[in-house]
């Protein structure tokens, strides 16, 4: 029991001394969790609680036809579940392929969810779900001017990132790998460059994360947070996997703050060489 309490205290004090801010809003958890593809609403609820996340992503979709009497419409029932959990929502523009679609979806989301936050996706390619970075920058500019706080789903391209920042983005969310692929960090070098290039901007690895070690690796690179969905939702035990991700993020962040050693090519003995007995 003491060990549990000690762990909890360490976690909360580290969160308090190492806060993360998105557009002036402080959060303690470095995990942003998607709400799609869970086996049931109950399992979604369990996973959100187990993850400790404070921010979940949501979308806007066509409301289903009239429900049977006494039953709630699908969207209404989902929304009351999320509100009861007391987490912040980050609406996305998933599936939008044009600037107009993304901007209109963002406007509708702002009215519906009552938040200026938007996870901006403008998809340019169906097989990889790669962002259309040209449309993304244009939509980010329009939305930022209109008072939105844009979280752009982008690539690790530094020039695009510069343009997003010029457009008003105060957060950047490069992909680790294609959405839902679970491949992890495809381009650690590119992600490291991005971290070095934008030391003052919150950076979130969004998409492609498959297992907790991928999330820990992102944190060890100095990333501020990780956004994931499929890796938890499609796991055999989503709540357990959510907890595993929370621990990996915490471990990776602590490791980054502890200043890891550099890798080297040759061995270096860790036990002192001096004082070794001559026995042979």
């Amino acid at each position: 029991m003491d060990a549990v309490n000690t762990t909890t205290n360490t976690t909360s004090s580290s969160a308090m001394t190492d806060p993360l801010e998105f557009y002036g809003t402080q959060v303690a958890s470095r995990l942003l969790l998607g709400t799609a593809q869970y086996p049931s609403p109950a399992i979604l609820t369990e996973a959100i609680r187990a993850s400790g996340t404070e921010i979940v992503t949501v979308s806007l979709r066509r409301e289903s036809g009239a429900a049977k009497s006494g039953e709630k419409l699908a969207g209404q029932s989902f929304w009351s579940l999320i509100r009861d959990l007391g987490v912040k929502v980050l609406p996305n523009t998933a599936g939008c392929k044009t600037v107009k679609e993304a901007v209109t979806t963002a406007e509708m989301a702002r009215e519906l969810f009552g938040t200026p936050w938007v996870k901006l996706e403008v998809i340019g390619e169906d097989d990889t779900l790669q962002p259309d970075v040209f449309g993304l920058v244009e939509a980010a500019r329009i939305l930022s001017r209109d008072g939105f706080q844009v979280f752009p789903y982008t690539t690790e391209d530094l020039v695009v990132a510069e343009k997003l920042v010029s457009a008003g983005c105060e957060v950047l969310m490069p992909w680790g790998a294609p959405i839902g692929s679970g491949r992890g960090l495809n381009n650690p070098y590119g992600l490291r460059s991005m971290r070095a290039h934008f030391p003052g901007i919150p950076l979130v690895v969004d998409a492609g994360v498959g297992v907790p070690s991928h999330a820990a690796a992102a944190m060890e690179l100095g990333y501020d947070a990780v956004l994931l969905n499929t890796a938890v939702a499609k796991a055999g035990d989503p709540a357990r996997m959510a907890r595993a991700f929370a621990r990996a993020l915490e471990a990776g962040r602590e490791a980054f703050l502890a200043d890891p050693i550099d890798a080297r090519d040759m061995a270096a003995p860790s036990t002192p060489v001096m004082g070794r007995a001559v026995l042979g």
Binding site: A36, V58, A74, Q76, I82, L112
Partner: peptide
Amino acid sequence: AMVRAARRGETPITEGDRIEILAPMQGG
């Protein structure tokens, strides 16, 4: 084009209109 909640009463429906009615849903 989006129609805000406050403008729905004064927004007429005419022949051939394409209406979208969207709700909060699961998303990643």
